[in-house]
């Protein structure tokens, strides 16, 4: 108990003496956590959105002629031979026409002058959820285009490809901002502690002569690193939360964000980010002491 009260007293003195540097470091750590968690939040939400889009994935094979029943079962066999599918649905010319008419709603009269059989018959294939990567979808699509009577296969490849590249880009940004977080937290805190150690060299020397143990001298610096990590990450995450709420409030309604259904981090992820920041800052403080403290 006496150990902790003395150590806390020493820590509070240190913080009072170097509050300006400590404050700047705290801001840097907060900003780094904010940048990293901002991109990480977008990335995790994009991954979730990708999973949801994967659930709705549908490949449409347009055919020259409507297949007869025997042909239909042959096509089903060929499709399932290549990959397990959730569902296969055949759409006749009439069904396609009726669906379009329903979609047009009040504007259905634009179809008046058209032949009801102008739309091609098609097969809609809903693949299993394990078909997740773009390459797998492409391979499946190429196979489907070789089916007898197939004219064209569509699955919204342009959109999926763009989404895929966007997710890749986000992954790179997350990695870069993660690296920035590691560098700033570790090096900034290490540098701050180094400055504090150098500024207080005379005091540390006196403490050493008076018989202060390594624990007595080092623990306050470690606590400073710990506090930088804890407060910095908490402030960064709080700022992100308020930014998230603001975006939610002002961009809610139909649109992209509604499609993506943005959610904030789970308590576990928040805990991991805070714990990682604390570890990095305390580690930075520890490494700085090992290098610059002669005890």
């Amino acid at each position: 108990m006496k150990f902790f009260s003395n150590i806390l007293l020493q820590t509070s003195r240190n913080l009072q003496k170097t509050w300006a540097t400590q404050f700047m470091t705290l801001l840097t750590v907060s900003l780094s956590v904010l940048i990293f968690s901002f991109f990480f939040l977008i990335y995790t939400n994009m991954i979730k959105a990708g999973e949801r889009l994967g659930d709705d994935l549908r490949l449409t094979i347009y055919l020259e002629e409507e297949p007869v029943l025997e042909m239909q079962s042959q096509l089903v066999r060929k499709i399932t031979n290549f990959n397990q599918v959730e569902e296969i649905r055949f759409t006749s010319r009439d069904d396609a026409y009726n669906r379009l008419a329903t979609q047009l709603g009040d504007n259905v009269d634009v179809l008046d002058d058209l032949d009801p059989s102008f739309l091609p018959p098609s097969i809609e294939v809903y693949p299993k959820k394990n078909l997740s990567s773009l390459a797998q979808i492409k391979r499946f699509s190429e196979y489907l285009s070789t089916l007898p009577g197939a004219i064209k296969v569509q699955y919204g490849q342009e959109w999926i490809e763009r989404f895929n590249y966007f997710t890749k880009l986000l992954r790179i940004i997350v990695l870069l901002s993660g690296t920035l977080l590691i560098l700033t937290t570790t090096f900034m805190v290490a540098y701050t502690i180094r400055l504090a150690v150098v500024a207080r060299q005379a005091e540390l020397e006196i403490l050493r002569l008076l018989g202060a143990t390594n624990g007595y001298i080092r623990t306050p610096f470690l606590i400073e690193g710990f506090l930088q990590g804890l407060l910095g990450s908490t402030l960064g995450l709080l700022a992100l939360f308020f930014l998230f709420r603001w975006i939610e409030l002002h961009f809610s309604g139909p649109g992209f964000l509604q499609l993506v259904e943005f959610t904030f981090f789970s308590p576990t992820i928040i805990g991991i980010i805070i714990a990682a920041s604390i570890t990095l800052c305390t580690g930075g403080s520890f490494s700085s002491m090992r290098k610059f403290m002669r005890i």
């Binding site: 006496k2 009260s5 003395n6 007293l9 006196i206 403490l207 008076l210 018989g211 202060a212 007595y216």
Partner: peptide, 11 residues
């Protein structure tokens, strides 16, 4: 006080 603080005496 420094001399006593390093030996963790009570405040």
């Amino acid at each position: 006080a420094m001399a006593m603080e390093v030996s963790y005496q009570s405040i």
